[in-house]
Structures are given as structure tokens and as C-alpha cells.
Design a protein around this nucleic acid. Structure first.
Lengths: 128, 128
DNA sequence: TTGATTTTACGAATTCTTTCGTATATACTT
DNA sequence: AAGTATATACGAAAGAATTCGTAAAATCAA
């Protein structure tokens, strides 16, 4: 199904992260989370969240005076979509190169490496 | 060394890809490459490349009338830098989740999986 | 040399994103 | 009810990124 919902901008993605992590939230709550990281005005966050509803990135419940917002798009679908275009743009389509960079430059723990090995095993089994 | 050179924008990155892939090139050449993918005017590409020189993303040789442009920043350093902020923004810092997504959704060949396994082996050895 | 072509230079228009000021409504406290 | 605090609505300013029109300079062909 063709996706009509646009790619979130950076600021929108920051808000989506909060919504994904905490579930339905008020503007106040989201703004407080964002404010932990950087200076941002309440009305700025409000406006962005209203725009996100317009774009279909978020939904809101306006039953009570304090509106409750929630993400309208799924976290891992969105990640997959963004990853795909990122790989295209930055690694000319080579997911392989990206994985090598990711494993190489971020230090990855023993447990994580084990997890990846298990994942590879699973993929290999499926490829039989 | 603190990097004063700004993050390339999407359109700039597209041009960098051409320069990285083909080495020093003219505006005409870059524009032809870009035009294979999407409609883009010659002067638009020219302007972008001039801006890139201003920003320090590209260098140019103006000896002859037809200027020759080349990337001023290294491909894998840039990829690493962009990847880092992408992981932060999109996967809340979890390189692990990104790798899982990358391995899962893009289909990865046997050879590539082997390569990743070798890489993991190498990392594990270093961690000793 | 004249006219056609290609190139760079410059500036401005356009579009998209982000931020904020102000007005208005609703709720809470005493 | 009056005063304070908190919320949404609206519009516009400010900033970035992208695109394009036009002009001037250099080159080439006849």
C-alpha cells in the first residue's frame, strides 16, 4: 500500500521518539522531555505536534481540554523506511557497508555480538 | 581536531556521491549523473557546487575555464559521522537495533553474511 | 570577426522547516 | 467573582535548503 504519510522532519522525529517511548502524551510532557536535551519553547512543540496531526504522523484525543497525542505511525516500520533511504543516500545502497561501519565504529558489547550472531544464524537457516 | 565543516545537506550529499565515485569532475559531468535519476537544472547543480566550495565540502581547480571540482571530505569519515547522528536520531542511539533492521529487511547474501561473521570474529578477538 | 554555444557569476524567488508572539478559552484557587 | 495558571489556535517571522532566471565572460566554428 502506497504511503501518503510524509517522512518526518528531524524535529518531528524527536517528538515521535518521545511518543513511541512513552505512549500517548500531552504537549506539556513531550515538551518537558525535549527540554531535557535542548532549549525549546512550549508553543514551538505544540505547533509541531499540531502539524504532525495535519500530516498524519500523529493522532490526538481532544475530548478533554488537555489534548492527548499519540504516534500514528509505527516505530519499526518508520525506522525501516528511514533506514532504507539513509542507506541509499549515504552508502549508495550498500546495507553491508553500513553494517560494517556500525559494528566497527560504535563499540559493540559481547552480548550484542552474540545477538547478531544468532540473527545471522537465523537468516542462514531461512536461506537453506 | 574539531570539525568546522558542516554536515552536507541531502542535495550536497548526492553530489558528493558522484565526486567520490568518479573523482574530480566538472559541473556538466555531475549534472549529467544527477539528471539520470531526476530532473535537475544545470545552474542548480552549479550553484550547489559553488556553495559546497564555500562550505569547505568541495575544492575546485579554476585554472581552465571549465572548473574541476573534487570532494574535500573523505567518504568513510563522512559516512561514519552521518551514521552516528542517524543512529542517534532514528534508533535512539542503539547501533544494535540498526544492525538488526539492516540485516533483517534488506536481503543479505551468503557472502555478505560470511563477511559480517568474519568481522564479528575480529572484534571478539580484539576484545579478549 | 560574427554568431552560436558553453560556462561561471550573481541574485533572487520558492519551498520547507522551525520558532515564537499574541489572543483566547478553560480550569483552578481563594 | 477575581485573579492566576495552563491550554490551544492562529499567523507570521526567521532560517535553511533548493531552484532558477539572467547576464557576462570565454570558447569555438564558419
Amino acid at each position: 500500500m502506497g504511503n501518503l504519510i510524509p517522512k518526518p522532519t528531524e524535529a518531528e522525529l524527536e517528538i515521535l521518539q518521545v511518543l513511541w517511548e512513552n505512549g500517548p502524551s500531552t504537549v506539556r510532557f513531550v515538551n518537558d522531555r525535549l527540554s531535557e536535551k535542548r532549549e525549546v519553547g512550549y508553543t514551538t512543540t505544540l505547533k509541531l505536534m499540531q502539524i504532525m496531526v495535519d500530516k498524519g504522523l500523529a493522532k490526538r484525543d481532544t475530548a478533554s481540554r488537555t489534548h492527548i497525542y499519540q504516534a500514528a505511525i509505527n516505530e519499526s516500520d518508520t525506522q525501516e523506511r528511514l533506514l532504507k533511504s539513509f542507506v541509499q543516500r549515504t552508502f549508495r545502497g550498500s546495507a553491508m557497508k553500513l553494517v560494517v561501519q556500525a559494528l566497527g565504529s560504535h563499540d559493540t558489547s559481547k552480548a550484542e555480538l552474540d545477538e547478531i550472531k544468532a540473527l545471522i544464524q537465523k537468516i542462514e537457516d531461512e536461506q537453506e
